[in-house]
Design a protein around this nucleic acid. Structure first.
Lengths: 130, 130
DNA sequence: TTGGGTGCAAATCTTTTGCAGGTGT
DNA sequence: ACACCTGCAAAAGATTTGCACCCAA
């Protein structure tokens, strides 16, 4: 959970990008978008920074399917929705069940740090294509 | 969600194994264990069957971290816990919040099929090693 | 100055897939 | 018989890592 020691232009660009979008991009998508600003950034650097940022809690790492990890610049507790058809991840516009987390913490002697709540189904776009 | 058409010895062995354990093994671990019974089974077959079984709902596919997919032979709705240190996945001994799922279904016009609830923290084993 | 950060490319690891042959119905 | 299933091995994809160089503190 410790923060990085040194400032890095690349890392801040990644954070800025993630905070500017409500989509929940994969590392590859982050890479493509950061390249528009820092053309010679490498994919390895993107991965390294995403891991570092997630480890220190500045961004969220979302593991919704077994394919790709998605990242979220908004770290307040909220629920996600993933479309089973297109794989897109979005925020759920509903209250976060804080009571559920507290209940779990009591059950596990406060050894719980977080909870991930991901709903799955078919999004409206895919529904209309069907 | 459609069930497989034909019986397969390998597939049933995989289901039996998953129903016999409360651990939440990865494909690799399933492979190792099934080989004790069917020595010449291939890893590809294990992956194919795990996908098929998860797709038709006979087992659960758990995506807790970005590393490995875990599988669960018990399909009733329940919450999971994953240790951030060792990566082990276990069941949470608490009521499943059915109301939360119903609330989300209403919010999304019943286009929601499921919800995954994964708590993360440090398990007792890792806690004692620290 | 110096240790973290980076770009590059190779390596690693997980999962999927093409194919030829086997098997359940 | 025919479609599905399998073992095998190669391919595909995602992510990590070793290395030499660069740069923030």
């Amino acid at each position: 959970m410790s923060a990085p020691v040194k400032y890095s232009h690349q890392r801040e660009a990644i954070v800025d990008y993630l905070k500017s979008t409500k989509s929940h991009p994969t590392a590859e998508v982050v890479y493509e978008n950061i390249r528009l600003i820092i053309p010679n950034i490498s994919l390895g650097t993107v991965y390294r920074n995403l891991n570092q940022l997630a480890d220190c809690g500045r961004i969220l790492r979302l593991c919704c399917d077994g394919k790709n990890v998605h990242y979220d610049g908004f770290t307040h507790p909220h629920c996600h929705f993933m479309c089973e058809s297109c794989g897109n991840v979005s925020d759920m516009d509903m209250d976060f069940p804080t009571d559920l987390l507290n209940k779990a913490k009591r059950l596990k002697d406060n050894n719980i740090n977080n909870v991930s709540i991901v709903f799955t189904g078919i999004c409206n776009t895919c529904k209309s294509i069907e």
